[in-house]
């Protein structure tokens, strides 16, 4: 064996393992002999420190600090996760768009109910609110006072518009009219 021993071979020799060739080389090679003695001396120091001295006492502070940092980091992550969840999904209360949608749906529903109610001849009074209830003047209201069922068609001055207006009056003020 002409090549110098590797560190692994030296450590193996120090542990009592190693081959006969490695032992022979270490005996013959001054450089490997010096390395062997140096490694042995370092291991003796390590062995002595571990067997005959107390370990240092500085570990508690470092570990406690690391756990404190980990706890703070975990709480920050949870806080950010909750904040992100709220920011993305929004609060439970409906927003303006949702309120507008709900109002529209309610309006449509009420319209669907009210149209059959105000139907006069089986047809849906789709234009009832626009017929002129709000636009009727006081004279017109007096003129249609008699435009009630069933003789409105034969009454002079009564037309369908006046008749419907009269009916609306009856529905809106049942206590006074009935």
């Amino acid at each position: 064996m002409s090549r110098c021993l590797s560190d692994a071979a030296l450590i193996s020799l120090l542990a009592g393992d190693g081959t006969a060739d490695e032992r022979a080389h270490m005996t013959a090679c001054a450089a490997c002999g010096d390395r062997h003695r140096r490694v042995g001396s370092e291991l003796t120091t390590v062995r002595h420190v571990l067997l005959a001295t107390d370990p240092p006492r500085t570990r508690v502070v470092a570990r406690t600090r690391s756990w404190a940092i980990a706890a703070v980091a975990a709480s920050l992550v949870v806080t950010l996760a909750v904040w992100g969840h709220v920011a993305i999904r929004g609060p439970d209360a409906p927003g303006p768009a949702a309120r507008q949608r709900a109002d529209h749906e309610a309006s449509v529903l009420l319209t669907e109910f009210s149209l059959p109610m105000f139907s006069t001849d089986g047809r849906l009074a789709a234009s009832v609110p626009d017929v002129g209830v709000l636009s009727l003047s006081a004279d017109a209201l007096d003129r249609v006072a008699d435009c009630e069922w069933p003789d409105w068609a034969a009454t002079a001055g009564c037309d369908e518009t006046a008749h419907v207006a009269r009916l609306l009056d009856l529905f809106e003020a049942p206590d006074t009219e009935l």
Binding site: T45, H48, V49, L51, A52, T53, D54, P55, P56, R57, R59, V60, R63, T64, W67
Partner: peptide
């Protein structure tokens, strides 16, 4: 293991040897 104290491990010798003093 990572947070408890590690001091006062019972060791074979408490007397400082010259070698120990040299470390």
């Amino acid at each position: 293991r990572q947070s408890d104290r590690v001091e006062d491990v019972t060791l074979t010798s408490k007397e400082p040897t010259p070698e120990e003093a040299a470390i």
